[in-house]
């Protein structure tokens, strides 16, 4: 089980990283950064800084993430049980090298968007990974609570509890979690009838955060395009940068709010147009609704149901008691 400790290093690391970023971008840090913050963290991905590490074989964030998670998935069962009746098996163990999409072995990739911006061709690089939503349906309706939002905001799947039913992927508007069949607890229960592996995705390097280290992508980014820090500070910084560059923010309201904010000088509607939604390659529509919000009204009534039942029961019982009292009174008169 991953621990939920708030990283001691978050503020210091954030300051260091943000200072480097500020030096690059010419921005100054907001005062809020120095004023202390809460336990909740957020990350910022500045698309004006990301160059996709085009001089490297793979983006530094991708390589770092892969190195950190190279042993995350245990050996795969051989052969992988074929589920019944729908015979879906997802095995990425022989395609571990894939880096241009999300897979159980690749939690982050960088999309390259070619955009016509103010009459000029512009290339925007967009790192894609889990957004770590504020109220993540992937976690709240996981039937085994294998996926959970930590107090620091990281949404973490416990691979020892996950059955790989892929419900989290279905309810995620970006379909981020990816399944690897042939691993996990389901192998020890009813492998052909229940479960189908384990879901994997970015956990914001929650284990490293607990030890006071930065997430791999943040630490590795040579241009400090990815930052992490106290939520309020990151949100303030995102606003400031967006204002400075007359740009746009993504992730603040999407899916009910997230703890990952993208800042871009180019509109996200244009960026999204360059994305064709494919398995493991989510698109980026603005204003994505939190579909689970549609269940909130009835959920609130569920919480009120005990009071409704007690009130109705008490009313019925009082009515009966007063009726009984009147009956006894009447009986007493008759007898007297």
């Amino acid at each position: 089980m991953k621990n939920e400790k708030t990283p001691e290093i978050s503020r210091r690391s954030f300051l260091k990283a943000a200072a480097g970023a500020a030096a690059l971008s010419g921005l100054t840090l907001p005062k809020a950064v120095h004023a202390g913050g809460g336990k909740q963290l957020a990350s910022l991905i500045d698309l004006s800084l990301c160059d996709g590490c085009s001089d490297r074989e793979a983006p530094a964030c991708v390589s770092a993430c892969r190195t950190i998670n190279k042993d995350t998935i245990p050996p795969i069962a051989e052969p992988i049980p074929v589920p019944w009746p729908r015979k879906t098996v997802e095995d990425w163990s022989r395609k571990r090298e894939v880096k241009n999409r999300l897979t159980p072995y690749n939690f982050i990739y960088v999309h390259q968007a070619e955009i016509d911006w103010n009459g000029q061709k512009k290339t925007v690089y967009v790192p894609r990974r889990c957004m770590h939503c504020d109220n993540p349906a992937c976690a709240t309706i996981c039937p085994f609570s294998a996926n959970h939002k930590q107090t620091n905001g990281a949404v973490v799947i416990d691979q020892d509890l996950c059955f790989g039913g892929a419900k989290c992927k279905t309810v995620c508007p970006w379909e981020i979690p990816q399944r690897q069949s042939g691993v996990g607890i389901y192998l020890h229960v009813l492998p052909t009838l229940m479960g189908n592996g384990v879901m994997y995705k970015c956990d914001l390097c929650n284990g490293r955060l607990g030890k006071g280290a930065l997430p791999g992508c943040v630490e590795a980014c040579p241009r400090k395009a990815i930052l992490i820090g106290p939520r309020a500070d990151i949100f303030a910084l995102a606003e400031e940068r967006a204002t400075q560059m007359k740009g746009y923010i993504y992730g603040k309201k999407e899916n009910g709010g997230t703890s990952t904010l993208y800042v871009s000088p180019v509109s996200f509607d244009l960026i999204n147009k360059t994305m064709r939604k494919k398995p493991g390659q989510p698109d980026m529509p603005t204003g994505v609704e939190r579909r689970m919000a549609g269940t909130d009204p009835l959920g609130k009534l569920v919480l009120a149901a005990p009071a409704l039942g007690i009130a109705a029961g008490a009313a019925g019982a009082f009515k009966w008691l007063s009726h009984r009292k009147a009956q006894m009174k009447e009986g007493g008169k008759d007898n007297g």
Partner: peptide, 12 residues
Amino acid sequence: AAALFHLTYHGM
């Protein structure tokens, strides 16, 4: 609501 009604009503 029905379960709590049952408990309250018959309990009282």
